[in-house]
Amino acid sequence: MIQFQNECITVFQSALSQTTCTVVEAKDFVLLVDPNWLPHEIEEIKRHVAQIKGEKELYLLFTHGDFDHIMGYKAFPGAKVIGSKGLQEHPNKEQKVELIQQFYNENYIQAPYPIVFPEVDIVIKEDGQQLVIGHTTITFYLSPGHTHDGLFTVIEPLGIWIAGDYLSDFELPFIYDSAKAYEETLRKAERIIARHQISVLVPGHGQATASQEEIKRRIHLAQDYLERLIKAVKNEDLEEMAALEKEMAFPSNFTKNCHEENIRIIQREYK
């Protein structure tokens, strides 16, 4: 399903977890980000890419290595893969592949293409690293915290910011890597919006937005949640921790587990 579209960007949204896949059509190339989830959804994305690609080079960007973001990798053979050094050297590649296979098995889905972890052609090693293609400059920023291997990507002059699993309109921070790194990544987000002319922000889950005020609201939403949770953990305030869990959208066993993991990581880093 297409949730956002203009003359240079199409954002698809899966029926599962409101996960996005972004297709950017530039003058000299096509950039595809995190194709996912269900086979028919990926086929819709493939048809769209085929319609606009022509003779242009296809680049395939993975914002991070979570299994739901990499499962469409082999649906686009021949694409040049972009990812962070953390993705290239991911320590749990086999586990991520197993999670994809488990998802297909649990839902009686025949895997439509090989299930393998992405091999990275263009490795992003540092903040500010750029890839210049024709008239387009793509600037990358490392964004650890949610996972260790995350990337922010800014595409200019189009003004597109691909945020990965940050800055959702509804999803509060899920910390699988580091709370301190997550806080720094949010400060980096503030610097990005001050440094670049952003016209569209696309999160990994939820709605894209063209509003500067909405982007700032989302940064503050995540910062406020983390600040209050860190304070509650430091003070061993069980009542406040329980209240913060209730702020999670779509409460489930999954969000409960994510909240508990947030607390464990904060306890490890701050106490």
Rank of each mutant, 00 (worst) to 15 (best):
E44S: 11
E98C: 04
K96E: 13
N36W: 00
A79T: 04
K46H: 03
P77Q: 14
Y104D: 07
K80G: 03
G128M: 06
G86I: 03
K53N: 04
E119N: 12
Y108F: 11
K80Y: 08
V123I: 15
G83I: 08
Q51F: 08
H64C: 07
G54Q: 08
A75H: 01
L87I: 10
E41Y: 04
D68I: 08
S84E: 14
G83D: 10
K53M: 01
K56P: 08
D68N: 10
Q88H: 10
D127P: 05
P118V: 03
K96P: 01
Q51C: 08
L58G: 04
K56T: 09
D68E: 11
I122T: 02
H90D: 04
I70K: 00
A50E: 07
Y73L: 04
H64R: 09
R47M: 12
E44A: 13
I82P: 00
V116A: 13
P114F: 07
E55V: 06
Q51H: 10
P114N: 10
K93D: 03
K56L: 02
Q95Y: 07
G86E: 06
L87C: 09
H90K: 11
L58D: 05
K93Y: 05
H69W: 06
H69I: 09
V123T: 11
P112R: 07
H40G: 03
E41I: 07
K125Q: 11
I115Y: 07
P77M: 13
L61M: 10
G86F: 04
P118K: 03
K96M: 12
N105E: 14
D127I: 07
H64P: 02
H69V: 07
Y104Q: 02
G128T: 05
Y113M: 08
